[in-house]
Computed example of a mutant assay.
Amino acid sequence: MDKKEKQLLHRELETYEDMGVLLYLNGRSTTPKRIEKAYRIAEDGNYMRDYIQDESGKLQAVSFDFVKN
């Protein structure tokens, strides 16, 4: 992950956090910092995102799950 990608991810995660959107990493509640670290050290795979909405379609949570290549 290069510097620009890291900055974009950081801003995105902070925006979610400011909106009150819950963040999950591999099924566990987490922080933007832990997701950023996971992205930096990921080897032999990548993270898939799952956007979770409530009944009205409002974004409620984002789940990041590791997927092996």
Rank of each mutant, 00 (worst) to 15 (best):
F66E: 08
D18Y: 09
K6C: 00
V67C: 07
H10G: 02
V62M: 11
R40H: 14
L23V: 03
E43M: 14
Y51V: 04
V21T: 02
L9T: 00
K6P: 00
F64H: 14
T15C: 15
D65E: 13
E55W: 03
R11P: 00
V67S: 09
L9M: 13
Q60W: 02
N46H: 08
D65W: 10
R11Y: 03
L25C: 12
T31L: 09
G45I: 02
Y51M: 09
D44H: 14
Y39N: 03
Y51I: 02
N69D: 11
A42K: 07
N69G: 10
Q60M: 13
S29G: 10
M19W: 01
G27L: 12
R28N: 14
D50S: 13
H10L: 03
T15S: 15
E12R: 15
Y47F: 11
A38G: 10
S56D: 14
S63Y: 02
Q60V: 07
T31W: 03
K37M: 10
K33S: 12
K68P: 14
Y47W: 08
R49I: 04
A61Q: 01
D2A: 02
E17K: 12
M19G: 00
V67H: 13
E5P: 01
R28Y: 08
S63N: 05
L23R: 03
Y47Q: 06
E17I: 10
M1V: 14
I41V: 14
V21L: 00
R40W: 11
I41G: 12
K68W: 09
E12H: 05
K33Y: 06
Y16W: 12
K37T: 07
G45S: 07
E5K: 05
S63H: 03
Q60F: 06
K58V: 12
E14Q: 05
D50M: 11
N26T: 11
Y51E: 08
E36M: 13
Y47E: 05
D18H: 14
R40G: 12
E36F: 12
L8I: 06
M19S: 02
R11I: 01
K6E: 07
Y16M: 11
G57V: 04
E43T: 15
N26R: 09
L9G: 01
M48V: 04
H10V: 01
E14H: 02
Q7R: 01
D44T: 13
T30P: 03
I52G: 00
E55D: 14
T30L: 06
S56L: 11
I35S: 00
T30A: 05
T31S: 08
L13C: 01
G20E: 04
D65Q: 12
E43I: 15
K6S: 06
K4E: 02
R34W: 05
M19R: 02
